[in-house]
Simulated assay, not measured.
Amino acid sequence: MKEINLASVIATKRKERGVTQDQLAAFIGVSKASVSKWETGQSYPDITFLPPLAAYFTISIDELMGYSPQLEQSAINELYIQLAEDFARLPFTKVIANCATIIKKYYSCFPLLLYIAKLYTNHFMLAESLQQQEALLHETVALCERIQKESGDVRLNREAVLYQAICCLALKNPQEVLDLLGDRPKRILAEGILVSQAYQSMGAVDKAKETLQAELYQYVMASFQILLNILQQNMDTFGKAEEAYVRAADFARIFNMKHLNPNNVILLDALGAQMYCANHITEKALALLDEFVDTCVGDFFPFALQGDSFFDLVDPFLHDFEASTPRSEKVIKESMLHDILMNPAFDALHDHREYQRLVQKMQKFLRKA
């Protein structure tokens, strides 16, 4: 991140123009000693001198101070990844305090604020108390509302609405979710198709193909998530739940989901195992847990969304999501063991030798990590 660096900027710009400290001092109306102190950082110019200094060097006051309220996307991605790692290795309150400092410094960098909202949404559960969790969720809602009111960016606004809805759901405010998103699904309008057709009309055939693949890729991921939710919502009706599971498994096979997004596959394995365990079909439950563990300890890490032989043009699209891993690798691994494999839904399997073997296998994997 760029820090205020007035001293070096004045010195550099003065030398670039080929003027002496005496000449700059005469123009501004101060002593040579004052200019010397500015350039060595011993003191700062009076605020009234900033406009004439900026005008003298033909730069903005922000440039004069070596400060930018905005960050490039690459810098935002790097910062996101670093903060996600900090949540895994540093005290929660320390990371939140760091985030608060960053927010104040870049309060008008709306893409960064959206990434902070993503971080908070994915890490609020690490707070020690329910009160702290709720406070962070409310802060995230406030960030999302600011983005919507001030950014003027349609894409950012749309994402901010979604993260605000997620927070409202976590805060047990379902009516606010409906107020934000509407009370029924909107008609699907695949914007990527229109963008692809526009590129096609311009003769940019490769760009048209790339756009269409990226659109389909997103719909594949979204459709799979919907199937997982249908499975989860129908756990009390075995026939419906198993049908959802079978369709999701077929979907995963057809679209090579284990390669594209192995996280989706382990979620399906875990939900399928819960379904079969709840219906006392132990053999199938253990078989799915075995697949779950094999995927976790196999090629899951380092986790990254990726294409395949069919989605062979999505790399530029995925590159924009360099920071897409919502939590650090350490936090994800611990969640695999405690939140999924050792879920109370599998209490009936605790005394089963195969289940114990799988838990030990995961624990061994975590110790090596």
Results as ranks from 00 to 15, higher is better:
residue 5 N to K: 14
residue 6 L to C: 03
residue 6 L to S: 00
residue 10 I to Q: 04
residue 12 T to L: 00
residue 15 K to C: 08
residue 26 A to E: 12
residue 26 A to L: 11
residue 28 I to P: 04
residue 30 V to D: 02
residue 31 S to Y: 11
residue 33 A to Q: 15
residue 35 V to K: 10
residue 37 K to D: 09
residue 41 G to R: 06
residue 41 G to E: 03
residue 48 T to V: 15
residue 53 L to D: 12
residue 54 A to P: 07
residue 58 T to Q: 09
residue 59 I to K: 04
residue 62 D to L: 07
residue 67 Y to V: 01
residue 68 S to P: 14
residue 68 S to F: 14
residue 69 P to L: 13
residue 72 E to R: 11
residue 72 E to L: 15
residue 76 I to P: 12
residue 76 I to Q: 14
residue 77 N to Y: 13
residue 81 I to A: 00
residue 92 F to K: 12
residue 92 F to S: 09
residue 93 T to F: 05
residue 94 K to C: 04
residue 95 V to N: 01
residue 96 I to K: 09
residue 96 I to F: 13
residue 98 N to D: 15
residue 101 T to A: 09
residue 105 K to Q: 14
residue 105 K to S: 14
residue 106 Y to I: 08
residue 110 F to G: 12
residue 114 L to R: 07
residue 116 I to E: 11
residue 116 I to V: 15
residue 117 A to M: 09
residue 124 F to Y: 15
residue 130 L to I: 04
residue 133 Q to F: 00
residue 137 L to S: 01
residue 137 L to D: 00
residue 138 H to D: 06
residue 141 V to W: 05
residue 143 L to C: 09
residue 151 S to H: 05
residue 151 S to K: 03
residue 153 D to P: 07
residue 155 R to H: 06
residue 155 R to C: 01
residue 157 N to G: 13
residue 159 E to S: 04
residue 160 A to D: 02
residue 164 Q to Y: 11
residue 167 C to S: 15
residue 176 E to C: 03
residue 178 L to E: 11
residue 181 L to F: 13
residue 182 G to N: 05
residue 186 K to D: 14
residue 189 L to D: 14
residue 190 A to I: 01
residue 191 E to H: 13
residue 192 G to P: 02
residue 198 A to D: 12
residue 201 S to E: 10
residue 201 S to P: 05
residue 203 G to K: 06
residue 208 A to S: 14
residue 208 A to H: 10
residue 209 K to R: 08
residue 228 L to H: 04
residue 230 I to G: 12
residue 232 Q to R: 15
residue 234 N to P: 09
residue 239 G to I: 01
residue 240 K to C: 03
residue 241 A to M: 01
residue 245 Y to D: 12
residue 255 F to V: 04
residue 259 H to A: 00
residue 260 L to A: 05
residue 260 L to N: 12
residue 262 P to F: 07
residue 265 V to D: 00
residue 271 L to K: 02
residue 273 A to W: 08
residue 274 Q to F: 07
residue 281 I to T: 11
residue 283 E to N: 07
residue 286 L to K: 05
residue 286 L to G: 11
residue 288 L to G: 03
residue 299 D to Q: 06
residue 301 F to Y: 11
residue 302 P to G: 08
residue 304 A to I: 06
residue 307 G to C: 01
residue 310 F to G: 14
residue 311 F to S: 10
residue 312 D to G: 00
residue 312 D to W: 03
residue 316 P to C: 10
residue 319 H to R: 06
residue 324 S to N: 05
residue 325 T to K: 13
residue 330 K to D: 10
residue 332 I to C: 03
residue 333 K to N: 10
residue 336 M to V: 13
residue 339 D to K: 07
residue 342 M to S: 09
residue 344 P to W: 07
residue 346 F to P: 08
residue 346 F to E: 07
residue 352 H to E: 15
residue 353 R to N: 11
residue 355 Y to Q: 06
residue 365 F to I: 04
residue 367 R to I: 12
residue 369 A to R: 13
